[in-house]
């Protein structure tokens, strides 16, 4: 299963990186979101993949490593805050510069 997860993460990162290299803000934001999904999954998987072993004492015989989970939990929320910030920054840029190009100006022909 680990190999499958690794390949999936690879695909997600590839898609995310390709999108953040685009010239318009919206695909870049979508790409960043994709990458943050992949990174969260990556950090989470560093605690290894376990089935039916949540880190709740007394609910199962063995427990998965809770530390990466705690890290990822806050990372998800902060990631959302950052996405929101970038999106709003883009909106502000659209309002001020009248373009959604990442460089703040339409490319010269």
């Amino acid at each position: 299963m680990e190999a499958v997860l690794a390949v999936t993460l690879g695909v997600m990162v590839t898609c995310g990186v390709y999108l953040i290299l685009r010239a318009r803000v919206f695909p870049v934001v979508v790409g960043l979101t994709l990458i943050s999904y992949a990174v969260n999954l990556f950090i989470f998987s560093m605690g290894r993949l376990a089935t039916g072993a949540p880190a709740v004492i007394g609910k199962s015989a063995s427990h998965v490593d809770p530390l990466p989970q705690a890290l990822v939990l806050t990372a998800i929320v902060i990631g959302f805050a950052m996405t929101a910030f970038v999106v709003v920054l883009a909106l502000r840029g659209l309002g001020e510069l009248k373009t959604d190009h990442v460089d703040g100006q339409e490319p010269r022909e």
Partner: peptide, 24 residues
Amino acid sequence: AGGCGVMVALLTFAVLSRPYDSIA
């Protein structure tokens, strides 16, 4: 992008198939 993806995949697989020591 493909290079980045391949590296992440390799890294993930390499780590997950290795022994694990944690402060859990």
